[in-house]
């Protein structure tokens, strides 16, 4: 059955009403970069669809040490206007110009691995997701947003409306390793945020993409780093620890074996970037 209705609500309220009316039968798209290829191929055959482009959820604002990014902010705007360098780097490493003009920050949370390159950066920045439903808003840490491959904590009547993150106080690094320079799925994506004071890591956040059912934090590797000097030994130990915390898969781009091998390599490279920057400052 072809699409019966494609709704383009002009406000969040209107969008929530539609969601309340159709519940899980309503396919929600924003940029369409994930859903449309499947619809074009006939793999996905939704009947009721809602597009979020006109809901006005694309505000990007900075206040009280936080950055709030509306869910439908395009990746191009994130690249050009985000006050957070890590997010600009992540956006630059996602897809290509044409697709970044369409794809959204909120939509990136729903991109199945190995896609979801911006979500990895958001995870390392301790972002929170604002979910808005008929009962109002609730805020969920991004680290607890996903529950499995393409599953999450959202209720059927909820939308992701914003992503909020504290302006990073430490140093950050982001590396996406793909087989091509651009416009390519990841073998592994690493995002890190470290606060180093007095030569010691005070706070560490490390996130990986493309090596699990969804972007992952690496709490054990973070624990290895926290309190230690950012030495080569600590970096190596953290990198090895991270390898044990991921759950890689095999696809056309890379095997599980290779992805697991690349996790410590690229975690170490990301951490070394920060160490070098730290040493230079």
């Amino acid at each position: 059955m072809s699409v019966q209705n494609y709704y383009l609500p002009e406000s969040l309220g209107e969008a929530l009403e539609l969601l309340a009316r159709y519940g899980p039968d309503l396919l929600v798209i924003a940029g369409g970069t994930v859903a449309m290829p499947l619809i074009n191929e006939g793999v996905s055959t939704p009947v009721q669809v809602m597009g979020l482009r006109r809901t006005g959820l694309d505000e990007m604002a900075r206040s009280n040490g936080n950055v709030k990014i509306g869910a439908t902010t395009t990746l191009t705007r994130l690249l050009e206007e985000s006050p957070v360098p890590l997010l600009r780097t992540a956006a630059r490493n996602t897809a290509a110009w044409t697709i970044r003009n369409m794809g959204t920050v909120g939509g990136n949370l729903f991109s199945p691995p190995p896609a979801g390159d911006v979500a990895v950066a958001l995870l390392a920045l301790d972002a929170e997701v604002t979910l808005t439903g008929s009962g109002g808003e609730r805020v969920v840490p991004l680290a607890r947003f996903w529950t499995g491959f393409m599953t999450n904590v959202m209720q059927a009547d909820e939308l992701v409306t914003a992503i909020t993150l504290p302006v990073p106080t430490g140093k950050t690094a982001y590396i996406k390793y793909g087989r091509k320079q651009a416009h390519t799925p990841a073998v592994v994506t690493v995002a890190a945020h470290l606060v180093v004071e007095g030569g010691r890591v005070q706070q560490a956040r490390l996130a990986l993409g493309a090596v699990g059912p969804h972007p992952l934090r690496c709490p054990q590797a973070e624990a290895v780093l926290t309190g230690s000097e950012l030495s080569e030994d600590a970096i190596t130990e953290a990198a090895q620890t991270a390898a044990g915390e991921c759950d890689p898969f095999t696809d056309a781009i890379a095997s599980e074996w290779y992805r697991r091998k690349m996790v410590p390599v690229y975690v170490a490279r990301a951490l070394r970037q920060i160490a070098q920057e730290e040493a230079a400052s």
Binding site: Y6, G32, T33, M36, P37, N40, G51, T76, T98, N101
Partner: peptide, 25 residues
């Protein structure tokens, strides 16, 4: 699929993939 770029058009001056864009948008 949005991956080859052969359908690129400009919407309000921005390059976009016409294959991924519902006309209503």
């Amino acid at each position: 699929q949005g991956s080859c770029g052969s359908c690129t058009v400009l919407v309000n001056g921005e390059p976009m993939a016409a294959c991924l864009l519902p006309i209503e948008d």
